[in-house]
Amino acid sequence: MTATRVIEPVVEPVTLTEMKAHLRLTGTVEDAFLEQLIASARAQVEQETRRALITQSWRLYLDGWPLGRVVQLPVAPVQGISQILVFDEDGVPHALSEGDWRLDKSTSPARIRVKPGAGLPSSAVMSIEIDFTAGYGTAASDVPADLRQSVRLLAAHWFEYREAGTELAMASMPHGLDRLLAANRVRLL
């Protein structure tokens, strides 16, 4: 199973104005750098928690259906499924109809149950593609406050300790970040 982000989020969960207020900055000299730090911190928080903070598109590649034909999606929260493609022996994609599968968003991670006999893949590697949308919403305000705080803490830490080799930068993380991330981490079974 391999998952890749197909479409990046359009906005970040923390605005430049919010980040500057957090750091008590008033000038504009560091704005471009802060925007890069916010994007990097969001990506790190998403990787650590297996969550998509802002709406984004993903593609999951499978070699075949897992036992029970239940597929756990590796990123949460899932908003919906765009399509499920199954490739035949000749590499021709066939879309499963919505009646062939059911999305269960009541669990975390969300999962898809595929009907028996639907979409029999070939023996080729990566013969199934599942396109889905994940994230809390399209606006920063849609993201839970503790995850937004995680992004702010991490971006502020990187801003303050931008020298890569310093002892403090290497040996410490922002106070409480590990607990914020652990409380939001999606467990994979």
Rank of each mutant, 00 (worst) to 15 (best):
M1L: 10
M1C: 13
R5T: 08
V6K: 10
V6S: 11
I7E: 13
E8V: 15
V11A: 11
V11M: 07
E12T: 10
V14T: 04
T15I: 10
T17W: 15
E18R: 05
M19K: 07
M19A: 09
M19T: 08
A21Q: 15
A21E: 14
L23W: 04
L23Q: 04
L23S: 03
L25Q: 04
A32R: 11
L34V: 03
E35N: 13
E35L: 09
L37A: 01
I38M: 02
I38F: 02
A39I: 00
A39Q: 06
A41G: 04
R42F: 02
Q44F: 10
Q47R: 15
Q47N: 15
R50W: 13
R51N: 06
A52Y: 06
T55K: 12
Q56Y: 05
S57N: 10
Y61F: 13
L62V: 04
G64S: 13
P66S: 01
G68I: 07
R69I: 02
V70T: 08
V71M: 07
Q72P: 11
Q72A: 14
L73C: 07
V75C: 08
Q79A: 10
G80P: 03
G80M: 09
G80L: 06
I81M: 02
S82I: 11
S82F: 13
I84D: 02
L85H: 05
D88F: 06
G91F: 08
P93E: 08
P93K: 11
H94E: 15
A95H: 11
A95N: 11
E98M: 12
W101D: 00
L103C: 04
L103T: 00
S106R: 11
S108T: 11
A110P: 03
A110K: 01
R111P: 00
R113C: 01
V114L: 04
K115C: 05
P116W: 09
A118T: 03
P121Y: 07
S123W: 15
A124T: 08
E129D: 06
I130M: 05
D131L: 05
F132R: 02
A134T: 01
G135V: 01
A139E: 09
A140E: 03
D142V: 06
D142I: 05
V143K: 05
A145Q: 04
D146G: 02
R148S: 00
R152P: 03
L153Y: 09
W158E: 07
W158N: 06
W158I: 08
F159G: 04
F159A: 07
Y161G: 06
R162L: 09
R162D: 09
G165R: 15
T166K: 15
E167Y: 15
E167L: 12
L168W: 15
R179P: 09
R179Q: 13
L180T: 04
A182F: 08
R185L: 01
R187C: 08
